[in-house]
Amino acid sequence: MSACACGNTAPKYPELQEILSRHEGEKGSLIPILQEVQAAYGYIPEDVIKEISLALDIPATTIYGVATFYAQFHLKPRGRHVVRVCQGTACHVRGGARILAEVEKELGIKPGETTEDLRFSLEPVACLGCCGLAPVMMVDEDTHGRMTPDKVASVLARYE
């Protein structure tokens, strides 16, 4: 691999080198590589896109295009915990929007964003599919039903 001119010479991403060598010489390997990168780092860092571009001789703009086309890929670091607040009809009727507003206020971020300390990511969702418990929020795999705005802080406090 040729050295790039940006001054980064030490491989900052050792797992990437393993991923790349696993797929060496393989056609159509870009998406599997991106999936493995995301599994390794939780997201796809810009510097990794540059490295993949050099290794595969694919323009970085093309890789970035693919990564932003598929919703499965994240281009920013994600928090240790993923918060989802249901905005489905049932939740909406029972005040889902107020729950979301409270979460936004508590964390200081909007859906699609991550807190600076990388503790939480807030994901935009339509319906979580557990309408019987409306309004619902999820943190990672845990479902918290019958939410009220004043319960939000204590729920979030359980996740470090």
């Binding site: 323009p59 703009t61 093309t62 970035y64 295009g65 932003t68």
Partner: peptide, 19 residues
Amino acid sequence: VNALGYVGRGWDTLILPLF
């Protein structure tokens, strides 16, 4: 040069410089 590329999908698609 490949300075420009498609970003995003559907209605949100834009042609943008890298990153």
